[in-house]
Write a protein that binds this DNA or RNA. Structure first.
Length: 229
DNA sequence: GCGACAG
DNA sequence: ATCTTGTCGC
């Protein structure tokens, strides 16, 4: 049984979903800056609080050139399938603090690989007006479709196909390590999303550098914050 | 009642 | 996401 708020959220997302375009809106050589976004949560008394962090990476040198973060109260509960409504307010606030203007944004979560093709990466693209990619660490099952484990070598992937449409990919970024789930956010195609993701993998993590750095930074700030009380 | 369930 | 120690493996 779906709650009233879920019905409202469904309406918002189905309106937006008609505008999704899974084609590159850029030339590969024009990608200079790529941002990664992540959040960490904790409790402060009765309130739920989160830290959002955005890391901007120079695609040519693979170095982080800017890190911005923001802490604020979160008032939307987590509901599987509605993550964007919980995280988008903080994300948009944090983006305002950036002095660089990324050409592409990667999110911790799904994009097109979602019941309404509107995971956080896709939903956020409409607010940011930027190409986006979804990077999830675990699989969100849709219509009872399981993913097929890719073979055990770097770069191996299997398509996640639902109703004859590719929703996303299980991608192996390291040997002997669980795959990640890559999906288009918006204004990008799945092959390009896969290629860029693989280019941003180093030995430290199965996640691409921008998302990994945002994850580390968000937890660093959280530790420093909870140590204060 | 039980299992599923991005983060 | 978060609560948590040691431990097995490359």
């Amino acid at each position: 049984m779906k709650s009233k708020i879920m019905e409202v959220f469904d309406g918002i997302q189905s309106d937006l979903s008609h505008k999704i375009r899974l084609k590159n809106s850029f030339a590969r050589e024009d990608i200079r800056l790529i941002a990664g976004v992540d959040l960490a949560y904790w409790e402060e008394g009765e309130a739920t609080v989160a830290c959002c962090c955005i890391c901007v990476l120079d695609f040519s040198t693979k170095k982080i050139i800017e890190i911005k973060s923001l802490i604020d109260e979160v008032n939307v509960a987590y509901m599987p399938g509605y993550l964007s409504f919980r995280e988008l307010p903080l994300i948009m606030q944090t983006f305002k603090k950036l002095s660089n203007d990324p050409d592409l944004v990667m999110f911790d979560g799904n994009g097109y690989l979602h019941p309404r093709n509107m995971g956080i990466a896709t939903h956020a693209s409409f607010h940011l007006n930027k190409s986006t990619i979804g990077i999830a660490k675990s699989y969100l099952k849709i219509n009872s479709v399981d993913f097929i484990m890719p073979s055990n070598n770097v770069g191996a992937f299997t398509d996640i196909v639902i109703n004859r449409i590719v929703y996303g990919r299980a991608l192996r970024t390291h040997k002997n390590v669980k795959p990640i789930f890559v999906s288009c956010g918006n204004w990008i195609d799945i092959d390009t999303a896969t290629e860029i993701t693989l280019e941003l993998i180093n030995n430290e993590s199965r996640l691409p550098i921008p998302v990994r750095q945002a994850d580390l930074e968000t937890k660093k700030i959280k530790r420093r914050k909870s140590l204060l009380f």
